[in-house]
């Protein structure tokens, strides 16, 4: 038994080392860096100057960072509600025994297998295009005036709409697997007892999907806080206020943007720490709100 323990230790050592070097060390270094004035991410410790909570004061005092946080919050809340509700709706419809289930499941999931860059380009250059875009063609059919979908007023929501389109299928699949895991007996018994589809959904499906919903919320929170590519696609030359999110702010702060040569890895680290804390808080809250294990099947 003792020798077995030694063997377990030696076999786990590489993984443990990997974890320490590639995960724990960068995390610790980032947290530490957020309290120092550091210009370059890879600067040696001798180039670090203690800055206390200076980096945190800087980012929370920054109007751009506050705008970025506001945008992220809207993506998380509004985008999250729409995406998860749509995904749930589609999952319920698809698992309800409709014809062509496989086709609809594949069609709705399709945006997830297309590169996000291609997807964003399609939305920007075709669907939202002012002159010949799909939406403005539809507006014209109804006799309306062309709309600037990517003007400064609408750009953020256009971006969120495109992002939702690309995300729904993923969460729908998660919900489908959850719903298919619920024994059919429950629904049959409920049907015999006279419960309609709506009642079955609210009294059986939803309560038994608590764990899945919790997981989706955590995944969505991670997606919203690490939102990056869509912003880059919707503001291709340089960062714009309408689309900025904290990760893009972090990127610009650490690497500089077009024509920007100042870099502040310390402030970037502080942004990273704040985002991590947000994800942890959301995770804890969802754990509290959706206590799993109270229902077994």
């Amino acid at each position: 038994m003792k020798k077995n323990k030694a063997m377990i230790f030696w076999f786990s050592l590489p993984s443990l080392l990997c974890l320490l070097i590639m995960f724990v060390y960068p995390v610790c270094r980032t947290v530490l860096m957020s309290f120092f004035k550091v210009e370059s991410v890879t600067a040696g410790l001798s180039d670090w100057g203690f800055y206390g909570i200076g980096n945190y004061s800087k980012i929370f005092g920054s109007q751009t960072f506050r705008t970025a946080m506001g945008n992220m919050l809207l993506i998380w809340l509004v985008g999250g509600v729409i995406t998860l509700v749509l995904a749930m709706l589609m999952a319920v419809v698809i698992t309800s025994g409709i014809r062509g289930k496989k086709f609809f499941r594949a069609a709705i999931y399709m945006p997830n297998i297309i590169s996000a860059v291609a997807l964003a380009t399609m939305w920007i250059q075709y669907i939202f295009n002012y002159d010949y875009g799909l939406l403005n063609e539809m507006v014209k059919v109804f006799g309306g005036d062309k709309i600037k979908w990517l003007g400064s007023d609408m750009k953020f929501w256009s971006m969120v709409a495109a992002f939702i389109f690309g995300s729904v299928g993923y969460y729908m699949l998660i919900y489908i697997s959850g719903i298919e895991g619920i024994p059919l007996d429950f629904f049959e018994a409920a049907t015999l007892d006279g419960a309609g589809k709506v009642k079955q959904f609210t009294h059986i499906t939803l309560p038994l999907l608590k764990g899945v919903i919790k997981t989706s919320i955590t995944f969505w929170s991670i997606n919203a806080t690490t939102f990056f590519l869509w912003t880059k696609m919707f503001s291709p030359i340089d960062t714009e206020e309408a689309t900025i999110v904290p990760v893009v702010y972090l990127y610009d702060t650490v690497f500089g943007g077009k024509g920007i040569v100042t870099r502040d890895a310390g402030a970037g680290a502080a942004v990273g720490v704040v985002l991590t804390v947000i994800i942890i808080i959301v995770y804890v809250i969802t754990q509290k709100l959706f206590k799993s294990g109270d229902l077994e099947y």
Partner: peptide
């Protein structure tokens, strides 16, 4: 330079752009 005067203010440059 490329908007260097406006970019001198790191914090407000995205607001300027918008």
């Amino acid at each position: 330079t490329w908007c260097a005067g406006l970019h001198a203010n790191d914090d407000l440059k995205t607001s300027f752009k918008s």
